[in-house]
Design a protein around this nucleic acid. Structure first.
Length: 426
RNA sequence: GUGAGCGUGGCCAAGCGGUUAAGGCGCCAGACUGUGGCUCUGGAGAUCGAGGGUUCGAAUCCCUUCGCUCACCCCA
């Protein structure tokens, strides 16, 4: 017989307790409001999709697909996957619902859970939540600027300080292949100087050697001396990039160009960007995104440009807490607790609580078997504003004793007047 | 997947080989019978993550395992 082990939440997956709700609601409210101002509409896609959507969209060789997806078969033997990122499902919905026939670009946002089978760590969980924004159907740099501005305004509205916007362009089908060749050429003769991870990246995804952070080998040196993609962009990509930078400057958003910024998902083209907090955490990136002009086509649609970003609520909240952000939202307090004495009063108490709730008040019934003193203590512990007392005296006179817990004042009120009295004192 | 640190009641936390495992918070109750918050008193609640070993004796030492945390990889 196995010893009984109490259940726990799965590894890397946590509860969001009542204490933390106000700050979370605040972040979500700011997200919704920012999206509204920019004309983005909410979309909710399912928590799971056909696994193939991500294999196709995100890329066969990516870590997300290769080792981080929660995949399972349903009873009909369909291969499904818990959503490991937000963009591919939105693009799937764009195609599935014929959004190509809507005015372009289609501006969408979502707030949804994301699942990745990773080793949990500070700011990283197997289930996390993203606020994501996508503009599909317009390849103009003005849309890049709009998306980036949306992300920037969002973080500013939350009150996050000292953030850095980092920009780069990684080219497109026209210019990237040649660049990758020159990058490979640069590394070919220097593989011995570089870490084992970089040697692996050299084989698997050469672009990623650029964002190696190791300092115990010559990776930094080799990466710095590598050819820069910004100098190898084709005319179209270069023009796009120049426009984007001028728009960002016109908007007065501070930014830094990092020619070594690349992103891990296969679908990115041209613009990639991140917003990073000041402290040098390892997974500190708070918001990240880019353009994905080939994705819709990859998913079976007509060639359609798109751009978007995702931002992790857990990381936003962590940064807000680190900044000492107060949860200014008052914790939910019951308006009243109904205390009663004796079996006869209990039924009246239940009815009274019910009536008051129907008037819109937040009302709790005292727990059974407690003395009046105990019931008052209970009310105090729950931060109730008032206690309504029903005892023999009140029953015979058809009244209720209303005690205000802040002032300690108590008065008899006609049974029918209680709701009004409470509403007035709120 | 790799490496390191840590696992004592709901939470925080002493103890570091030797009688019934401190304390604080929280919870429950009492302090003259229908009255809170302060104070005082009392109470419930721990097989010291689990399994094995060393020892006369282990929460304390060793091994294994699970979990948590942090870092790497990668990512929000």
């Amino acid at each position: 017989m196995e010893a009984f082990v109490p259940f726990k939440s799965p590894r890397g997956i946590r509860d969001l307790l009542p204490d933390q709700q106000p700050l979370w609601r605040h972040v979500e409210d700011v997200a919704k409001e920012t999206a509204r101002r920019f004309g983005y509409q909410r979309i909710d896609t399912p928590v799971f999709e056909q696994a193939g959507l991500f294999v196709r969209g995100v890329g066969q060789g990516t870590d997300i697909v290769e080792k981080e997806m929660y995949v399972f078969k349903d009873r009909g033997d369909e291969e499904l996957a818990l959503r490991p990122e937000g963009t591919a499902p939105v693009c799937r919905a764009y195609l599935e619902h014929g959004m190509a026939s809507l005015p372009q670009p289609v501006r969408l946002y979502y707030l949804s859970p994301i699942f990745r089978y990773e080793r949990p760590q500070a700011g990283r969980y197997r289930q996390h939540h993203q606020f994501g924004v996508e503009a599909v159907g317009d390849g103009d740099a003005a849309v890049d600027a709009e998306i980036i501005e949306l992300g920037w305004r969002f973080t500013q509205a939350l009150g996050l300080r000292d953030l850095t916007l980092v920009l780069n362009s990684i080219g497109d089908k026209a210019c990237r292949p040649a660049y990758l060749d020159s990058l490979r050429e640069h590394y070919r003769t220097r593989l011995a100087d570089v870490c084992t991870d970089c040697r692996m990246r050299y084989e698997r995804n050469i672009l990623r050697v650029l964002d190696c952070k190791r300092t115990d080998s010559k990776c930094q040196e080799v990466a710095e001396s590598a050819p820069r993609i910004s100098e190898r962009l084709c005319d179209a990509c270069r023009a796009h990039w120049r426009q984007l930078v001028s728009f960002i400057e016109a908007l007065g958003i501070p930014y830094r160009v990092n020619h070594r910024l690349v992103r891990g998902l296969d679908y990115y083209t041209r613009t990639v960007f991140e917003i990073q907090p000041p402290d040098e955490g390892s997974q500190s990136t708070i918001l990240a995104g880019g353009r994905y002009d080939g994705l819709i086509e990859e998913l079976g649609g007509r060639p359609t440009p798109g751009i978007g970003f995702g931002t992790g609520i857990e990381r936003l909240v962590a940064n807000l807490e680190r900044q000492g952000k107060e949860t200014d939202v008052a914790a939910a307090r019951p308006d009243a607790l109904v205390a009663y004495m004796g079996a006869a009063a209990k039924e009246h108490a239940i009815k009274l609580a019910s009536e008051l709730r129907q008037q819109g008040l937040s009302v709790l019934l005292a727990p059974p078997g407690k003395s009046l003193k105990g019931q008052l203590r209970h009310a105090d512990a729950l931060h109730a504003r008032a206690v309504l007392i029903l005892g023999e005296d009140e029953l015979t006179s058809g009244t209720v004793s209303v005690k205000d817990l802040a002032t300690g004042e108590q008065q008899r009120v006609e049974r029918g007047e209680v709701g009004g009295a409470l509403l007035r004192s709120n």
